[in-house]
Structure formats: structure tokens, C-alpha cells
Design a binder for these strands. Sequence first.
RNA 1: GCCGGGGUGGGGUAGUGGGCAUCCUUGGGGACUGUGGAUCCCCGGACCCGGGUUCAAUUCCCGGUCCCGGCCCCA
Length: 426
Amino acid sequence: MKFESLRGFRDIYPEDAEPRENMFSTAKRVAHSFGFQIIDFPSLEPLDLYRIKSGDELVSQTFSFVDKGGREVTMVPEATPSVVRMLTSKKDLQKPVRWFSLPKIWRYEEPQSGRLREHVQFNADLFGPDTPDADAEIIGLAASILDSLGLSGNYEIRMNHRGMMEKILKSMQIEDAARAFSVIDRFRKLAENEFIEALGAIDISGKPAEMILKLAGTRVESVYLKQAVSEIVPLTQDLSDILDRIAKTMEMVSLFTDSRVVVDFSIVRGLSYYTGIVFEAFDVMGELRSILGGGRYNSLSTLLSGQEIPAVGFGMGDVVLELLLRRNGLWNRPTATDGYYVCMASDGVEMYSMRVAAEVRKRGKTAVRDSGGRKLSSQLRAASAAGLTKSVIIGTREAETESVTIKDMASGKQSTISYSEFLDSL
RNA sequence: GCCGGGGUGGGGUAGUGGGCAUCCUUGGGGACUGUGGAUCCCCGGACCCGGGUUCAAUUCCCGGUCCCGGCCCCA
């Protein structure tokens, strides 16, 4: 019988687990530097938590089952509902609340490039203020994490605004924005005629369809935003206000990163619950799906709890991020780490060598002791593989004189010093 | 759920309707009875699973499964 990991699930060995850990710890460090605090929540949630806001399409793509108590439960397919539940059930939180988490997320979908059935998602949300400052802070956090991973200049932020899009559509006499969004969302995947066809299928044709086509293909920097929109629809006061806010947000984001920030009118982020700004980050080569995505969702807490708490946040999966880091040569294990590999050159020194290793560790340093039963040459080969900077060689000679031989693995040089001298050097 | 392409040791490969399979690498050990990353030697380890065709299948056919990519969807 042969066992393999399930379709879409991964076994992660040290050569990947360590770069990965490095990636997560960078994200954590940056989040902390922004004043965000880590939270955690269950991996299993009631299925209804997702039914309320998303409907059957999402539910069909979850790992769900009926538990022994007859409850419909699901492996969490996203962080936000759980986070919002935590937020709304603790009534004494002082706003703004800045939270992040690193949950495992499950989705029952066909695996493909950048998408698996289980992944880790870095998730950050800022609750309370509904301001361009808060929007910019969240996007700035996302960008700062990517920058800290060494990806500056290798990605760009594309943003849009749900409210702006709704107003633009409305000026074209299109009331059902949600349906239009689902077509606009596919803009990049469709040829021009297919896009027009898809719009026609939801009763948008003629001039409005042409306008939407032009709009969806538009990407602009903040300074040209107003002009670009005014070329397509008349600027009402409402619309103008939103455009000012977007431009302000973009300018603020530019304070966080040198990466390009543009408005891309094709970014609408599926259906779901976004109410204001939406954004995604893409690799500049355009080879991968989006690295991260998020936006403002001011009504989800109302939906889940009746409390109105404005929110803005984003999620970033580890799968695409890993692909991007690999492509940029940033997926490497650390080189030799500071520490000692303890070898035994002869029989009868087990206790002494183990004591040496234990003392090294007590002083907060790394010590890996060979488990013995083999020649010194084999032990030193293992020492090389262990990637530690030094080896300690202990044999009868050292045991008799209470000394240790320290070998520098890079240079090959070694010297014998007394045990106490060695301990003092740690 | 659907579509396309794949599946030979841990990784990378050669090859064939018939001698349970090539080479490299990795792993273990040795040459080196107290010295690694060099060299040489030895050893371990594979034809995805099931069914069919056939005297005979790793090779051909069918189904499944997994991998890669795409669709749907992307929370």
C-alpha cells in the first residue's frame, strides 16, 4: 500500500519549509511594525457563516461535512468571516482595531498554477475608521511586506473603487452593478468581441458596452484619474468626491512603496461584500495570478451581527507568493548557521560529548550531537550537511584532559582548548 | 465538476511486446584503525493502480488515480 498526500495538498520538506518560514516571519515582523496584532481562530466553522454572505457557489467549493452532532461544518475557506465574528463579539474593543492572522485555508477546487486545496493565507484587517488613511495603511502594509521580501519593483498595485464603478454604471442606466462586475472581472481573460458578447448576455450593448470596454481596458496613475473618467462619463459631484478620495489614497500608498500604483477599472474582485476601494497586486511580468487582494467591506459586520463597523483588509496566499519569490531567486535557505556539531572520535566519550552539547544549548547556542555508532569521517560529513559553522571533536584525548577540539568548518582549521575555556567562549 | 498533456529508484533520465531495466545524482558504508565538502570502490532504491489484449506488458488498449496547465470560481 502506498500513501501520498491528497490532491491539492502539500508535504513541505525543510528545503522549502525554511524559506517559507522566513517568508511568514517577515510578514509578521512588518505587520507588527505597523501596530497590527496577531490573532487566531478555529479551522472548522459552521457552514452558515459562509452561506449568509456568499451563497451556494462558495459553499460548493468548501470542504464541508456533517459532524457527529448533525451540524453542518466546514474547513475555513477564508479568514474574514471568522475575524469579523471575533471583532463583533468582543464589544469593548477600542477602535481602530488592527489585526492579522496566518490561518490555513481550504477550498475544494481543481488545483492549478498558484492555487491548491490547502494554503496559508496572511490576512490583515483594519476596523473602525472609514478614511483614505485607513485604506492607504492597509495597502501600504501589503506593499511593505512584499518590499521586505525583496520584491520591490517586481509587482504593481492595481486598485479600483466599487462605489465609483457603481456610479459610472448608473450614469449609463445600468442598475445591476453586481452582474456587470462579474463580466468586468473577466475582462482580462476575454477577447474584445467575447467581452462585448458577455455584456450583451446581461443586456448591456451599444454605447454603454463600448464605454465599459474602454473603461475596463484603462489603467491610470492618480494624476490622470479624473481626466480618464471624465472622458467616459460626466463628472457628478458624488463621483468627483470619490475620485478625489481614490487619488488621495493612491498618493498616500506611494509613500509606502516605490512600486507602481494604478487604477485599473477591470479590478472588481468577484461578487462578495466589498463596498469601497478594492485592490490587487500583480507581478509585473504578468505571468501569475494575483499575489494578494483586498478592499473595503463596510457592511459585513452589519450582516453578521447588526453592528456597523467599517473595515478594510486584504488576504495574501502563500502559493503565488512562493512562485514569485522563486522566480526572483529569493527562495533560499539560510547559509551556515552559527552552531556546533558534536562528533565523537572514539568510544567511551558519550557522556562527555553529551554534556558538552547540553552546556552549549544552555547558553542559548545551537548544538547538534552526532548520534554515534560510526566513523569520525562519516560524522564530519554529517556535520557539513548540517550546515553549522563549527564542529566539536571529542575523543579519548579530549576526555582525559577535559578539553575539546573545535574545528571551523569553512576554513578547516582546528584547535584544542580546555573545556572551561570553551564554555567561556560561548 | 469539465477539458488538454503527462506518470521509470528520493531527484533527473535511457530503453524495450519477451533475459524484473541504463546512466547521473542523492542516501548508507568503506579505502582513511581520530578528520568533512576531492577521488575510487561496494551497497540500497523504480517501470502509478486496476482490468483487458497476448504464449508474454514496464511497453499496446480501457478505466481510475496523481502531477502539470486551462475552464468554472476566486471568498
